[in-house]
Amino acid sequence: MLDTISTRSKVALVSGLMLVPITIGVSGYMLIEQASFLDALFMTITTVATVGYGEVFPLSSAGRIFTIFLIIGNLGIFAYSLSLITRFLVEGNFFEQIRRRRMKDKIKNLKQHVIVCGFGRNGQAACDMLQKHQIPFVILESKKELLELYLGREYVFYLNEDATKDESLLNAGIEHARGLITTLPNDADNVFVALTARGLNTKLTIISRASNGSSFTKLKRAGADNVIMPDTIGGAHMASLIVRPDVNEFVDILSGQAGADVQLEEFSYARLKKNLVGVNIVDLNIRKLSGANVIGLKKGDGSYIVNPNINMELEPDMKLIILGNSSQMETLKSLID
């Protein structure tokens, strides 16, 4: 039964148990011995604590009988309270509460981070990719054993909480987040998370996992911007490795999955500095300045242009898809930022 009591309730229970004999003792000594409040309190504390300081004032026979019952009654209460306190400390609840509070304080300072709901295989893969690109993220996972991989890492933020609860998403800083990835094993839970997250932050980019094809439409209606079906993608990828093995291996290299020093990044055209702004791709001079290449464009209406003509006119609402190695990307970022 004790395991079902919350930490706050345990603290209240211990405090109440300790207060009961003190209240009875002070009241008894004041009524029986006509003692002052301070003398009665001091006598009660020395009695229930069994420190043996002696009588603060002479006790009558009634006072001594009262003291005997106060000591006997307090022994059980004191022993039970001590066991609760010891269990609270030994099980790590006290230190866990301190760690959780510190973690929440750190998360409050995050801006433009990503919330990852669920830390199974898909969640771990998403976190590894985010960490590789140095994008801050917060993990929400209700099963503590799944978080053991990241426990103790100061640069990773995590909460051992249920992602389907509004309070958990708020604790993870959803109001200031840039995106949310929900990889919970149950599609219904992912739908609920997407729906709740969209209500808490209308500008949030939401990516959801789906196990069944029937959940795709539900997740989109709930507010998910993209829905990923890992099993379907995995099967299609395995088949494509038979049909077009070299092409797919090359795509894996471009996506960074093969471990090569290759990065694909997107840059807003409006983000470029004045010395980079031009009327077309060739005028940007990105290849000469950084060594990276523009391999695609995303237009304002959401459509894409693959391998755009270098003389194509650019628009302020366009995004540039750029390919290069880590050194080239750092050079480009330094020119932009």
Rank of each mutant, 00 (worst) to 15 (best):
L184Q: 01
G300Q: 03
V306I: 13
D317S: 14
V277D: 03
R8M: 08
K273L: 07
I181Y: 00
G278W: 01
K288H: 10
D246S: 07
T46K: 09
I77M: 01
I115M: 01
S290N: 02
I98A: 04
Q263Y: 08
G223P: 10
I242E: 05
E313V: 14
A188L: 14
G92V: 06
K165H: 09
L335K: 11
Q124V: 14
Q131I: 10
N93S: 15
P308I: 02
G259R: 06
T7S: 13
S215D: 05
H133M: 14
D231Q: 15
K274Q: 15
T67Y: 04
E145C: 03
G235Q: 00
E266V: 13
L2E: 12
R287A: 11
D261E: 03
I310G: 15
F216S: 09
E167N: 11
A210Q: 01
A222L: 01
T202N: 13
E55I: 12
H133W: 08
V20I: 11
S83L: 08
R87L: 11
I281N: 01
L284V: 02
I253G: 12
Y269L: 07
N280T: 10
S326E: 06
S61F: 15
I85A: 01
T44Y: 02
V116R: 07
S327C: 08
G213N: 12
I305T: 13
G291E: 01
G54R: 06
K108E: 12
S6Q: 04
T7V: 15
R102L: 11
G152L: 05
L159S: 08
V247D: 02
G302D: 05
K144Y: 07
F216Y: 15
T23R: 08
A194W: 01
A188E: 15
L146N: 13
S83F: 08
Y29S: 06
G300C: 04
M312I: 14
D105V: 14
E145V: 12
V262N: 10
T217V: 14
P230E: 04
A12V: 10
L89S: 04
L169H: 01
K218T: 10
Y150R: 06
S240H: 07
Q257G: 10
F69V: 14
M103A: 07
T196W: 00
L147N: 09
D317R: 11
N190D: 03
K298R: 14
L180H: 06
K274T: 15
S142N: 05
S6V: 04
F78S: 14
A239H: 10
V48A: 02
V277G: 07
S327Y: 13
